[in-house]
Design a protein around this nucleic acid. Structure first.
Lengths: 340, 340
DNA sequence: TTGTACGCGTTATCAA
DNA sequence: TTGATAACGCGTACAA
């Protein structure tokens, strides 16, 4: 079923059909006929021909590091909710944390194919920037602060700083479990916030550092390694809730009392962190909202037709739960609920 | 940069350029020139024009109920790994469990737009079937057994049956926490397996039934409701690990010993189920593999060019962990690890 | 208000 | 082995 056949069936020219479908600048009489014919035949214009003609696709490419991550899926849910309302669809590119794949998809999206790109990246090499600049459609970075690019990101640094400040009220020997991947926000931002807080507030505090993968199992292993070497550790700082949950499991098995002997924290305020006992103190990031913001920013750029080098830093909220010891005298610990 | 400009720059007709790019049926001499020109200009053919011409898009539409679910993201990861190797990309449609959205996307995919569809559905109404039949491209159903459609699904019935059989060795009063949504596989398959096992093996066993949403919080609430009404319940059967984790949390808070007083099970063998204490006994489903199988089946249909009404039933594996009491004398409980 | 004619960037056919 | 030329299905100046 093409526009030609509709035109023939309705006894009009195909330009009239096109107008009926678009501007709507058609006489009432023909409008009636066309409505009927189109309904009867179930005709829908060919997207492909429209794409060719209009040079747009209605597609937004979304590059994600791994779909199994709770933070990523929350961001994608946010993106999806905003864009689908505007009639866009998501072209998903799952890179499994493989830099080669990221570059491949940036290359695929380079020419036409999509109207815009949202890039949830972890590291940015020279080659990334080269491809991002060659891109002929607007791109918004999500999850990392990238100079001179429109981006939406979490305030990892201050979240880590604040959380550490709270920890330090009751800590003298801290184990830090970071991540091995070169994720800039998680790897550097959170670490720097942690280090700075220690240096500013309690420089005499001892710190032992380990690197883990993004998984509970890795958290378990590293906690064992760390506590075997430093059994007197009284605080565990984990850069994700998943890692913290694994570490907690080890602490249980090894007979440590939590939080009496070892207190611990994670990041992300995930469902998993709230299901274990005690609940893991954490930082809530507005992941879904950040996805929505990134989508809105992209829409704005698309509509304005020019680059908007806006950087949006999202807020956060500390979630202090039972996994932390109460600070000596001042503010008591509040309970918290998991949110969007 | 279009094929015309390349042709002009190389001093050949655009047909020759096209041949160079496709069949390669071009003289060595012109081949050299074209190679250079194309490299210098960085020319890439327009996908949109190719789509229009070839009537294919290289896109596979994937309709998912909600991206935040661990089982769904594992399936998508599997689909993605297979299809991207074949040069296809995923067009993701996230419906948030909204039937209207599902129908909308089936409609969008109806004409061209995508070369095939993988549909991770939950319920199938008359309207679903109508649209599925009208679809002009092949469709594979993932996660549900649908008569007369190519599909890949989990053996929810037998998994539930086997798990229940194991439970019954040490149960006399069972609480069943199912789901409110009309997900056929989870809602009916698992329930029927459970009911049949009870009827076959221990019909005198008392059963109390509740319905929850797909969340830990709902599991918590329903466990409270159930145990308040039936405090002597000695076994909790939850249809997902998430629900089970929430129920476990309630059991802890209410002071029940697990598994001594109340044993419990979930489904999915998720990371969360393995992080809580005791670890939740569960069923491992090969979600990622099922995604790969669905993708392969779709590729097969695409290549053969005709419908293949194949139904693939995936296997499962019981994961018996500490949340179950040991059966009286026969086989001891095995530990288990979480897998793909 | 309507229809004609052209172009979007490819690929396919056919004759040379 | 090559180059005109005709589709593919649609949108839109432009003229009527």
């Amino acid at each position: 079923m093409t526009i030609n056949e509709i035109a023939r069936l309705a006894g009009v020219s195909r330009a009239t059909v096109s107008r009926y479908l678009n501007d709507g600048y058609v006489s009432e009489e023909k409008r009636q006929i066309l409505q009927k014919v189109i309904k009867d035949t179930g005709y829908e214009p060919s997207k492909q021909a429209q794409n060719l003609r209009k040079k747009t696709t209605g597609l937004i490419g979304v590059i994600i590091p791994r779909i199994q991550s709770e933070s990523v899926s929350r961001m994608v849910a946010g993106i999806s909710s905003v864009l689908s309302k505007e009639g866009y669809q998501l072209l998903l590119a799952n890179t499994q944390n493989d830099e080669k794949e990221e570059l491949k998809y940036l290359r695929i999206f380079r020419n036409n194919q999509v109207d815009g790109v949202i890039f949830i990246g972890t590291i940015f090499t020279r080659e990334h920037f080269r491809l991002m600049e060659e891109l002929e459609v607007p791109l918004v970075v999500l999850g990392q602060q990238i100079q001179a690019w429109p981006c939406v990101y979490q305030d990892d640094y201050h979240a880590a700083y604040d959380l550490t400040a709270r920890l330090l009220k009751q800590a003298s020997k801290i184990g830090y479990i970071g991540v091995t991947t070169l994720d800039k926000a998680v790897g550097e931002g959170r670490k720097q916030g942690f280090m700075d807080a220690v240096a500013d507030i309690k420089p005499e505090c001892q710190v032992e550092i380990r690197q883990a993968a993004f998984s509970a199992l890795a958290g378990y292993d590293k906690a064992r390694e760390l506590l075997t070497k430093e059994p007197k550790t009284d605080t565990l700082f984990c850069v994700t809730d998943e890692i913290a949950a694994g570490a907690l499991k080890y602490l249980h098995e090894a007979g440590y009392q939590v939080p009496e002997q070892v207190q611990l924290v994670g990041f992300g305020d995930t469902a998993m962190g709230k299901m274990v006992t005690p609940e893991i103190s954490s930082v809530h990031f507005y992941y879904k909202t950040s996805g929505m913001e990134a989508a809105k920013l992209l829409l704005e750029i698309l509509q304005e037709g020019r680059d908007i080098k806006k950087e949006i830093k999202m807020g956060y909220r500390l979630c202090i739960c039972a996994s932390l010891r109460a600070p000596t005298a001042d503010n008591g610990s509040r309970t918290c609920k998991s949110g969007a």
